[in-house]
């Protein structure tokens, strides 16, 4: 286990959020420290993806109560781009296609925005090409994908690799990976997982959002949280994920109901 003295990266307190008139987050509490890997599990519609989008600042979601602090600073006041620049990264479940916008250019502009924020020099086109080619190895991605439009015509697996490539380039302090394993075959899953493992450092934290144990076989979480109805119902070690795999989510609901009754 990680020492609880490690610096705080993300503190989510009593977070409530809605989209249109529907309440989706109902008081989420979660703390991530440097060096930790957390897994967030739960059924479809339990609020996992919403939490990820709220953390990244998606305009459709309105925070109605609670707070999120990133290294002690208020995160919720920042625009999506500011969050990225200070080191918050969301790996999308469904990365959008952006026809006409060159992937390489997009990656360069994004990387430089982050570098500039953290006081590092911007990379010119040539320096960036070297950098990106080195990082491509992390996800074993074909350089041909750099020449295409952002995600356009990429297969599901290629899109996910492109996400991890972005993570490798941006070097975030916290990576929130929203169902990065969905739609991947076992080989692609291993490549993506190994990419995530390579990028995890004692200074960074990772939040994996997933349905399945199989990703957690590849990336070992320090904590597992189970979400239901917009709240975290249970927290445990990696054994909790195994229990879920065996007993399903009903078990969480029941045990939670019993807890409430007590």
């Amino acid at each position: 286990m990680i020492s609880s003295e490690a610096p705080l990266i993300l503190e989510i307190s009593d977070l409530h959020a809605r989209v249109e008139d529907q309440v989706i987050l109902n008081g989420v509490n979660l703390v991530l420290r440097a060096g930790e890997v957390h897994a967030l599990m739960g059924r479809n519609g339990s609020g996992k993806s919403t939490l990820a989008k709220v953390l990244a600042g998606h305009p459709s979601y309105v925070v109605t109560a609670g707070s999120v602090r990133f290294k002690g600073e208020d995160l919720l006041n920042l625009t999506p781009e500011e969050r990225s620049r200070i080191g918050v990264f969301l790996g999308f479940q469904y990365p959008v296609e952006i026809p006409g916008v060159s992937n390489l250019e997009f990656l360069r502009v994004a990387t430089n925005a982050r570098r500039q924020q953290s006081g590092r020099s911007e990379l010119d086109t040539f320096e960036f090409e070297d950098f990106v080619h080195e990082r491509l190895k992390v996800v074993q991605m074909d350089p041909a994908f750099l020449e295409r439009s952002v995600n356009e015509g990429f297969s599901g697996g290629e899109k996910k690799r492109n996400e991890i490539l972005q993570m490798a380039l941006l070097e975030p302090l916290i990576s929130i990976l929203d169902e990065t394993d969905s739609g991947l075959d076992i080989d692609a899953l291993r490549i993506v997982a190994s990419g995530v493992n390579q990028l995890a450092t004692p200074e960074t934290a990772t939040l994996l959002i997933t349905h399945y144990q199989r990703l957690l076989n590849e990336i070992k979480p320090d904590f597992v949280h189970v979400m239901s109805n917009g709240r975290i119902l249970r927290t445990g070690g990696s054994e909790l994920a195994l229990k879920l795999e065996q007993s399903g989510y009903e078990w969480v609901d029941e045990s939670f109901a019993n807890q409430e009754a007590d």
Binding site: A56, G57, H58, P59, T79, P80, E81, R83, S84, R85, L90, F92, P95, V96, I98, G100, V101, E105, F106, V109, A110, A113, R114, Q117, V150, Q166, L170
Partner: peptide
């Protein structure tokens, strides 16, 4: 727009890129 912004690209630049 959100995708580009969430990678640190400012609103103006994101629109202009698209």
């Amino acid at each position: 727009l959100f995708y580009l912004q969430s990678r640190g690209i400012g609103f103006e630049e994101a629109v202009s890129m698209m």
